[in-house]
Every structure is written in C-alpha cells, then in structure tokens.
C-alpha cells in the first residue's frame, strides 16, 4: 500500500469532514482502496455531498455527463488526480 500525497491527504480530510466519518482517520484512508461499497462504504448520496463539498472548496464542479465518473469516484487516488487536474485547468483559465 502506498502513502498519501499531500493533495490526497487534503482531500481525505475533506471527505472525513464533509461526510462526518468520525470513526475514520483521514491519514488512514488507503489511496487505492475503493471509496464506495468497500472500505469506507460510501453510497451515491455521499458522492453527491462530496461533490458539493469539492465544488465549494476547490471552486469547480464535477460534471454529471463525464463518462469517467465511475473511475473518478473509484478511489482517493483517482478522485485526487481528477481534482488536481481540474484545479490547474481552472486556475490557468483554460476552461
């Protein structure tokens, strides 16, 4: 199991805070473990709340028509990579 990057850690803390996962230590979320159904047991309502928290914090919207949504929400690592990519394009004004 690999360690969290700083960006992944920040996102893990957002997940724990926004979904009120009191019994979960953000640092202990394995970056490649499944977010939904598996370890954390999140469902689609959690995904919605997480998407709202992400747009509030990072200032961009996760799109509903993105065919990669299933992959993007599959793990902390995938979600963080997507967030970082969107943040950089938003900041440079490419979108």
């Amino acid at each position: 199991m690999s360690a969290q990057t700083p960006a992944e850690h920040e996102l893990a803390e957002l997940i724990v805070a926004s979904l009120n996962l009191e019994s979960t230590n953000a640092a202990a979320i394995a970056p490649e473990a499944p977010l939904f159904g598996g370890g954390l047991g999140l469902d689609s309502i959690d995904a919605l709340e997480l998407a709202l928290a992400i747009s509030k914090r990072y200032g961009f919207s996760l799109r509903s028509d993105n065919p990669d949504n299933k992959r993007i929400f599959s793990s902390l690592r995938e979600l963080s990579a997507h967030v970082e990519k969107q943040r950089s394009t938003t900041c440079s004004g490419a979108r």
Partner: peptide, 10 residues
C-alpha cells in the same frame, strides 16, 4: 451508476 444520476439531479 448512482453518482452520475445524483450529479444530474444537482
């Protein structure tokens, strides 16, 4: 998948 549906609702 449920995530896509809830985002579409949003």
């Amino acid at each position: 998948d449920g995530t896509t549906a809830v985002l579409a609702i949003r």
